[in-house]
Amino acid sequence: MPEMNTQPRPLLAAGFADPVFDSQSAFRAAMEALARPGRIRPVGTASLADAPLLPSAAALVLALCDFETPLHLSAHLGGQSGVAEYLRFHSDAPLVPEPSRAAFAVLDLEQDRLDLEGFAQGTPEYPDRSTTIIACCASVETGAALTIAGPGIAGVASLRVAGLPADFAAQWAANRAGFPLGVDVLFAAPGTIVGLPRSARIIGETG
């Protein structure tokens, strides 16, 4: 991953320089990303340059997670030196090994196998009790274009995410079929994010 520093470090890397404004700004990017699926949003990560994982993903965790949100780290990220310590320290979120218990999950699209069904899907009475996935990727401007439609989109929109697995459209169709149950995904690339809420449908794939 670009920007990712996997060297062990003597001291924990810094979190947000200004927790109030930086959290607000990262949250607002996430809100806009999920409200307008496919639309690319910048995420300010200036103070997180030394984070042991992709700074835009770190910004989302720091903005959204705390001691009330079980956090799942993927096999790859969990094995990366310092990632768990960093997120634990700065967010206070309890780490859970089971993806199905996670309120938030962080994974790396290039290194981890994506299995949407394995995460918490919510219940018919409480569909909000589901996992929000933060998926690190190299880019949200390259990669095969998916045509998406649904709430938040005037007509149709295009979604490009580098490193999506070949069966992603099929997995997403299954996720969409379970609506209102299902997971929501925030794709985090260097400096930018793009959102795919469970309400979105993939209606076409073009090279």
Binding site: M31, L64, D128, F179, R198
Partner: peptide
């Protein structure tokens, strides 16, 4: 705020719920 923000993201993902 943080707790409300999480609720807002879910609300957007499941419109009307």
């Amino acid at each position: 705020k943080r707790m409300i923000r999480r609720a807002i993201l879910k609300a957007i993902a499941v419109p009307g719920y």
